[in-house]
């Protein structure tokens, strides 16, 4: 640009005009020797604009924006999800698939052992979530072929042979040459091919092994790992951080699967806690003495009404629905 052209263009520029000038913006934000030279020439040609140019610079230099930074885990998780999506797309060229496989091994390597990733992949999402409402049971077939019976008011999240459990579930784990892990509040079960039940309610987790072999590891780091044998029950209280090992009947423990409740030496209070956890109602026993009574034999738990009917018949109480969330059991009068 010659002197005349510069003068014509910039002589009457205001600050705002400079700030809409791409040469000017580039000079401030992406400086280069060429831009320096050009703007020095402008200042020399129209010295009366020196101040306006300084002002415009100051505007730009003191304005910025908050930077929002995503968590690294969010970026990685998003990429992995995307990678699975593009891998689930119909193929076009075999060459691309080979590259995908190699890259997938790199990305998923931290979590997955060997090349099992593609075998396990079922849908578009690596993470599966299954949950049940109060009073609802569900059977879930996991992508690796393992089966899970989910008791009421429970949730599992599954990814690559790792399960996070809230509530209770009966696992029938497909035995393949890779570990299967179940995490609950306070402990992890490592499965070596097997059927077992985990009941994690309030501060207590109970594990009952039906068949096969599992190892329990505790999050607190103080308890030693326990290798369980079939028929054993381990009960862990994560408030007291203590585990107790005993024997039980796995079939009875998991009778909920067939909508029966069969607790070992069940006190009325234990049964009521179980019903509260699985049906989401508060149950109040008016006569506290009844709480310590034992009730043997299966209780039908296909619905809360059924269960309470059985209990109230045995205990000679009536069932009063106080409001939508609270049920009161009151002893019938003697006459």
């Amino acid at each position: 640009m010659n002197k005349e052209a510069i003068s014509n263009r910039y002589l009457h520029f205001k600050e705002s005009d400079f700030l809409t000038d791409s040469y000017f913006l580039e000079w401030v934000y992406r400086p280069s020797a060429e831009l320096d030279a050009f703007w020095q020439q402008v200042i020399n040609t129209v010295p009366q604009q020196k101040e306006t140019i300084a002002n415009a610079r100051l505007y730009l230099e003191n304005l910025s924006f908050v930077t929002h930074t995503p968590a690294d885990e969010a970026i990685t998780a998003s990429w992995e999800k995307h990678l699975e999506q593009i891998q689930a797309l119909p193929e076009r060229k075999p060459a691309i698939r080979r590259i995908l496989l190699r890259a997938a091994a790199v990305v998923a390597g931290a979590i997955v052992i060997g090349g099992t990733w593609f075998v396990l992949r079922s849908g578009n999402n690596s993470q599966l979530v299954a949950r049940t409402g109060f009073g609802e049971l569900k059977q879930v077939m996991l992508p690796d072929g393992s089966q899970v019976d989910l008791n009421a008011n429970s949730k599992i999240t599954y990814k690559d042979r790792e399960v996070w459990l809230e509530g209770e579930a009966l696992f029938n784990v497909k035995h393949i040459n890779s570990k299967f892990l179940v995490h609950t509040k306070g402990l992890t079960v490592t499965v070596l091919g097997t059927v077992f039940d985990i009941r994690q309610r309030r501060s207590k987790t109970e594990i009952v092994l039906q068949s096969g072999k599992i190892r329990l590891s505790f999050a607190n780091g103080r308890e030693q790992d326990i290798i369980m044998k079939p028929g054993q029950i381990v009960s862990y209280n994560d408030k007291e951080e203590q585990s107790v090992t005993g024997n039980t009947s796995p079939e009875k423990f998991s009778a909920w699967k067939n909508q029966r409740l069969l607790l070992q030496d069940p006190k009325v209070s234990d049964i009521l806690i179980y019903l509260e956890d699985n049906f989401g109602k508060k149950i109040i026993m008016e006569d506290p003495a009844l709480n310590d009574r034992m009730v043997n034999g299966p209780i039908l738990i296909s619905s809360l009404d059924d269960a309470l009917f059985v209990l109230s018949t045995v205990l000679n109480t009536e069932v009063i629905k106080r409001d939508s969330t609270t049920i009161v059991m009151r002893s019938r009068s003697e006459q």
């Binding site: 890259a103 997938a104 990305v107």
Partner: peptide, 24 residues
């Protein structure tokens, strides 16, 4: 050309930038 490694880098780079932009 279907190069996943290059693609991963691009994705992560733009994830940060779009997250920042989108949050506005």
């Amino acid at each position: 050309n279907g190069d996943i490694e290059a693609y991963s880098g691009l994705y992560k780079e733009y994830y940060k930038r779009f997250y920042n932009y989108g949050r506005k």
